[in-house]
Design a protein around this nucleic acid. Structure first.
Length: 759
DNA sequence: AGGAACGTATAATCG
DNA sequence: ATACGTTCCT
């Protein structure tokens, strides 16, 4: 049973088996951190700890899902399935739904994404008649977010001298007031933003000790991954939950702390010893991922930072190749150089596309690489940027879903009340909003109020409003009866979205239609698999998942073997054989915003460290002497970070570093690159190539499973072939446990599962 | 009310 | 460069 301990080194093994009391695991890059976490949880479970008494917080949903599967393969999927494992946001959203009544929220609260938040801020600024030039929604929101992450409420904010001085200095003295109104509007609309999920959890635990006690009792063991990137709000939640049993294990690496811009406090990991005296310290220092050259080069970078936890990361792998530095004259040439290199290396070394990743500082840099890759016909996938769920047509449909679940959701209402066009315009909306504000009610309440006729809206428009209300009410009435897919399909057609897109015969319109199809297919998949596993598969459940998705959670099956393009931030935790770090220039990496303080610069340097340590065999750094920014040609010098790398591990042409030479604009031949690059519609490959991919195979005919018995071989549409382990339950809720060859062990409800009996 | 045409501000990193 | 907002016209 304890075979899994055999493959671990000594430090890893201690970190796995010493589960009592507080532990701090300092995990250097590539040191097998995920294995340790996985085995530690599996170890707990195999010792008889109940899965629902284990809370494990990860950084992304994807990480949680993968870890769950790995744990499941040791202890069984059904056990792993009952773990409280997920991101902070998803776990505490779940708790907040159970406990929402304490806070006066509906349990069906919906979640604003950052665009919704921005729109709300914008409308508040307008209402307050503030200067819209000075109060940029993004900046205002950043201040509000920072306050929330520090658990500073609007009242406290107004008394906080530091914050107020800061706001005055940046010409936005009224932020505290915007903040107060923002909170009020969210409350009124029954919505939370991302930060609220954590803030409200804190409020819940602070004001309702019984509730806190319940969860303190429940969670015997708590584990937190990427602890160096937790903010104060997250820190305090964990601290309170761990207070009773004190079985808390945090894992992290101070050298990889890269999220201070969203409130992460590197101090949380540095001060762990003060919070939990008597803690055990485990240091994972052997890097199994990268060659010696890469580890050494990375070490020489991070050495330039001060105040770190002492550690000695080393590699016992091959020496490997030095870190290579490439110079390009322009951003376009950079694209060609890198893609050529990938093309040739793949041929020469018989590698696969998935062995290559292009990492950049900002999403805006992805474009030239996309174009270069496309010209060379190399398949690629992009993370970040405009994700699938941020597309207009998708957001429109999701807004209908949100409104169906929570009609008070104001941003959702504003978004779709006149889409597809139904003759409800600005004038009408202004009247409604005025009424909502003066009576302190949600827009929806105004709409369903019989006194609506007194608002001076003409009879024709009133009729249109009534129709809209009836439409949403009709959807709402079906929330319980219909599955997620059934209701979603109904909403898509009855709302008129399908018809509207169908009428648009342009290429873009066609693409939008495909996207809606794809979303519906995704919901179908969601519904099928939840039903098969005997879990709720209503629209509410789908929306819950979608609201908290990250870029990385959208990966498609046939996206696997492609070149990866992503920001360095999203590459954290991942690894690739060959990594290209591009745009390593002053003013871009480090960015101009980061060069003003040593603290910011150190974070940028950690980011660079993270980038280099993603590579297993080869790391290549490139910079361009000129590039387009905001549509303007700019010139740049190689980044100071390149100089941070010890020359011994570097392969660079010294001539490229004569950085004072005058850049030569003539290198960009007009007509090449930029000029002819707008030939094709800019649709991302990873979404175009597989519209309809998830549609059920037509010729899969499921067998009648009434006579299914343990030991039989079966085939499943998505999970492939497997063997029935056991059958339990009485009709119609018979459940089969099936061990699939590739997908692991699953429990399936026979009334939903489509299984073909093979033997 | 709703669309076309024009002007302008904009892109850091994320759940 | 382009996405977004405003203005103007129907």
């Amino acid at each position: 049973m304890q075979d899994y301990l055999k493959g671990l080194n000594e430090a890893q093994r201690s970190a796995v088996v010493e589960t009592d009391g507080p532990s701090l695991v300092i995990a250097g890059a590539g040191s097998g951190k995920t294995r340790v976490l996985t085995f530690r949880i599996a170890h707990l479970l195999s010792e008889g700890v109940k899965p629902y008494r284990v809370l494990a917080l990860t950084f992304t949903n994807k990480a949680a899902k993968e870890m769950k599967e790995r744990i499941g393969s040791v202890v069984g999927q059904h056990i792993a399935g009952s773990l409280w494992m997920g991101t902070f946001h998803s776990i505490f959203a779940r708790i907040l739904r159970y406990e929402s009544k304490h806070l006066g929220y509906p349990s069906s609260f919906t979640i604003y994404d950052s665009q919704d938040s921005k729109n709300l801020v914008k409308s508040i600024v307008k209402k307050m008649k503030l200067n819209e030039k000075a109060y940029k929604p993004g900046s205002v929101l950043a201040r509000i977010s920072a306050a929330k992450n520090d658990l500073v409420t609007p009242v406290v904010y107004a008394r906080d001298v530091n914050r107020m001085t800061h706001d005055k200095a940046s010409q936005m003295p009224m932020i505290h007031e915007i903040y107060a109104r923002y909170m009020k509007e969210c409350y009124k609309s029954g919505v939370m933003d991302f930060d609220d999920l954590l803030l409200n959890t804190n409020i819940l635990f602070r004001d309702f000790p019984d509730v806190l006690k319940k969860y303190q009792d429940q969670f015997d063991f708590i584990m937190v991954d990427e602890y160096q990137d937790t903010n104060y709000s997250q820190y305090l939640i964990i601290k309170k939950l761990a207070e009773k049993h004190k079985n808390i294990c945090v894992v992290g690496d101070d050298a990889q702390s890269i999220y201070s811009f969203r409130g992460a406090k590197i101090e949380n990991i540095l001060n762990f010893r003060n919070d939990y005296p008597g803690y055990k310290l485990f240091k994972l220092e052997q890097n199994y991922r990268s060659s010696q050259n890469i580890v050494n080069a990375a070490n020489s970078i991070i050495e330039k930072n001060k105040g770190q936890i002492q550690k000695n990361v080393f590699s016992a792998n091959d020496l490997g190749n030095p870190v290579r530095v490439l110079k390009a004259y322009s951003d376009v040439e950079e694209g060609f150089l890198i893609t050529n290199d990938i093309f040739e290396k793949r041929m020469k070394e018989h590698l696969e596309y998935k062995d290559f990743a292009i990492l950049y500082r900002t999403n805006a840099q992805s474009r030239v690489f996309e174009e270069a890759l496309r010209k060379k016909n190399l398949p690629y996938k992009i993370y970040g940027g405009l994700s699938f769920y941020q597309r207009k047509e998708i957001k429109d449909l999701l807004a209908y879903f949100r409104l169906t679940i929570n009609p008070a959701d104001q941003e959702a209402l504003k978004r779709v009340i006149n889409y597809p066009a139904r003759g409800i315009g600005k004038t009408t909306m202004d009247k409604l909003i005025l009424a909502a504000d003066s009576s302190d009610q949600s827009l929806w309440n105004i709409l369903i109020n019989p006194n609506i006729s007194q608002l001076g809206i003409n009879a024709g428009t009133q009729k249109k409003l009534a129709n809209f209300v009836a439409l949403i009410a009709q959807f709402k009435a079906q929330l319980e009866n219909l599955s997620a897919y059934e209701l979603a399909a109904e909403v898509a057609s009855a709302s008129g979205i399908m018809k509207d897109l169908h009428n648009d015969k342009s290429i873009e319109g066609q693409g939008r239609m495909d996207n809606i199809d794809e979303l519906l297919n995704g919901i179908k998949d969601f519904t099928d698999s939840k039903q098969e596993e005997g879990e709720p598969a209503k629209l509410v459940n789908f929306l819950e998942d979608v609201a908290l998705l990250t870029d990385q959670d959208n990966e498609k099956a046939d996206d696997i073997n492609k070149v990866t393009l992503m920001t360095i931030h999203s590459a954290k935790g991942l690894e690739f054989k060959n990594v290209y770090i591009v745009g390593v220039e002053e003013g871009l990496f480090p960015g101009t915003q980061s060069t003003d303080s040593e603290k910011n610069l150190e974070e940028e340097r950690r980011l660079f460290y993270v980038a280099v340590t993603r590579a297993e065999s080869n790391a290549t750094i490139s910079f361009a002497r000129s590039r387009y920014k905001y549509g303007e040609l700019t010139y740049s010098r190689p980044s100071r970070f390149i100089g941070d790398i010890d020359q011994a591990y570097l392969d660079v042409n010294p001539e490229d570093f004569v950085s004072n030479e005058k850049p030569q604009p003539s290198f960009r031949k007009p007509g090449l690159g930029q000029a002819n690059s707008n030939l094709k519609p800019r649709i991302r490959m990873n979404y175009t190539s597989e519209a309809g991919q998830s549609k059920p195979k037509i010729n899969f005919n499921a067998s009648n499973t009434s006579g299914l018995q343990a030991g039989m071989r079966v085939e499943h549409e998505r999970f492939g072939q497997g063997e029935v382990v056991s059958i339990e339950g009485v009709a119609p809720n018979v459940k089969a446990t099936v061990k699939f060859n590739n997908a692991g062990q699953k429990q399936l409800l026979l009334k939903f599962a489509k299984l073909k009996i093979l033997t």
